[in-house]
Amino acid sequence: MATLSSSSAKPLSTHHAPWMSHIALVLQAVAALALAILILLPVLWMVTTSLKTTVDTFAIPPVLVFKPTLEHYEALRAEGAVFRGLLNSLIVASASTLLSIALGAPAAYVLARFNFKGKADLWFWIISNRFISPIVVALPFFLVARNLQLLDSHLALVLVYLTFGVPLVVWLCVDQFRAVPTEVDEAARVDGANLWQTFFRINLPLAAPGIAVAGILTFIASWNELLFALVLTRAAARTVPVEAANFMTGFGIRWGPMMATGTLIVLPVLIFALIASRSLVRGLTIGAVK
């Protein structure tokens, strides 16, 4: 590490003697390590607690070396509710993601390629859903779903998740389609392709990696959602965040199963986040940056 010092770019302190810059480098590495621990510790604490026996969980001082047990995961499997919740979450998040892409990607293509009156307003309206508090949508959605007998169904959740899924896909995919050169469209038109063919056969495949990233972020947002799921489901369609929140009710918290549930929830999310890490911030700043 120390060997790439002097000549490489971005020196913090070239005006000091070389040995001082080596010390600075070591200090920086220590600071980085401390920061990494601070970021990771809460997650690691959850994961290790999910693998500890109940006795070890309550130990003071905390046991750092212990014999891991899968007993809490076994308990969750035997009870079934959390695994059903995971399945419900998978169904709802996948369906709402696919639907968001099916609706959002063509709209993004049109917004990226065509100029028409009111385009800026339309775009802003789609994006402005980011600023609407879910509780505003949850109240009427609950009443409508109750009247239509859609409470506790996957469909109600899939539909309500479009309120953030479609804007997110549009926001991210407009960039993707803008990156496809317009010459490609013109060449296709010269060859006799109509707009739909140009979109489905040429632009869609070219923008596919970006659309996949938009899909991953939509999936994460749907998977993580609690408020709508809490309000719109009862038992059959309950998603896993609702199951996790339910550990907090009743007497005596079952820490092991609760932390095992938390681990099962975040595992896929963290993997997806690493895959889509470069677009995560772009996705989150929807509507607030140019």
């Binding site: 929140a245 549930t261 690493l274």
Partner: peptide, 14 residues
């Protein structure tokens, strides 16, 4: 990237 993607429900549990 990791904390940002964390399920807020699980952040509460932690």
């Amino acid at each position: 990237v990791l904390p940002i993607a964390m399920t807020p429900t699980v952040t509460g549990l932690i």
